[in-house]
């Protein structure tokens, strides 16, 4: 385990050099353990592909590097988690984005082949970030890896499906962005209006870390 200091009251745990299922499962295991037995003064855990940020109450734990030995001991004893066979969430997608041809051309594929390959994979939500509820989905077909746009667009509509390098994801709120837009989904991924549902405020987020997702191509539909 490698620990990286990150200013007063915070510390970052480096789990793996490469993102993927293995890093995800280790991260999941550590997070569950920290949720079960939260260390003294811990305020917030922010996971990502290969690292976990731990933020403490600065007045209680000004220098978390000092408690690293305790943390390591706790995490090493954490029970293993099994690859969760969570049900697959199917999301209707229209492959009609402005960058479909660019993705096809750069990868020497036909547009139809790009859509087929993108919809063929069952993805896992490795993390949420960038904007509220924005899912980073893995793993993207190697043949679809596409560099970001040379200059980012200033406005991308929520629901847009993008490819950025080796990632694919879905924009959730109006924002600028440099990913290649290949289509859009029909259901809002983030909707604060759903927060008042009986399922509680988490219902704002359609997808949560660890969820499995499959895109179901549907015919053109006006937004």
């Amino acid at each position: 385990m490698k620990w990286i200091p990150y200013g007063p009251g915070a510390i970052m745990l480096h789990i793996a050099d490469r993102l993927g299922e293995k890093a995800f499962l280790i991260s999941q295991r550590f997070i569950e353990e920290l949720e079960r037995h939260p260390p003294f003064g811990l305020l917030e855990i922010v996971p990502s592909f290969t690292r976990i940020l731990l933020e403490f109450d600065e007045r209680l734990v000004p220098n978390p590097m000092a408690i690293v030995p305790d943390l390591e001991l706790q995490l090493k004893r954490a029970p293993k988690v099994r690859a969760t066979r969570s049900t697959v969430k199917e999301i209707s997608a229209v492959y009609d984005g402005p960058d479909l041809e660019r993705v096809a051309e750069l990868n020497r594929l036909t547009v139809a082949e790009v859509c087929r390959r993108h919809a063929a994979v069952t993805y896992r939500v490795y993390m949420l970030g960038f904007s509220p509820g924005f899912p980073y989905l893995g793993l993207l077909d190697r043949r679809l890896h596409t560099p970001r746009l040379p200059s980012p667009r200033t406005a991308i509509a929520p629901g847009s499906i993008g490819i950025g390098g080796e990632h694919t994801g879905i924009y959730t709120v109006p924002s600028p962005g440099g990913w290649n837009i290949i289509g859009h989904v029909l259901e809002p991924i983030f909707d604060p209006g759903r927060g008042s549902s009986p399922d509680g405020e988490e219902a704002m987020f359609l997808l949560k870390p660890g969820d499995r997702v499959k895109f179901v191509p549907v015919k053109e539909k006006t937004r």
Binding site: G7, A10, L19, F49, T50, R51, M127, F130
Partner: peptide
């Protein structure tokens, strides 16, 4: 870098 958590400040 691989996207990772970012603190305010």
């Amino acid at each position: 870098i691989i996207s990772e958590p970012m603190r305010v400040g």
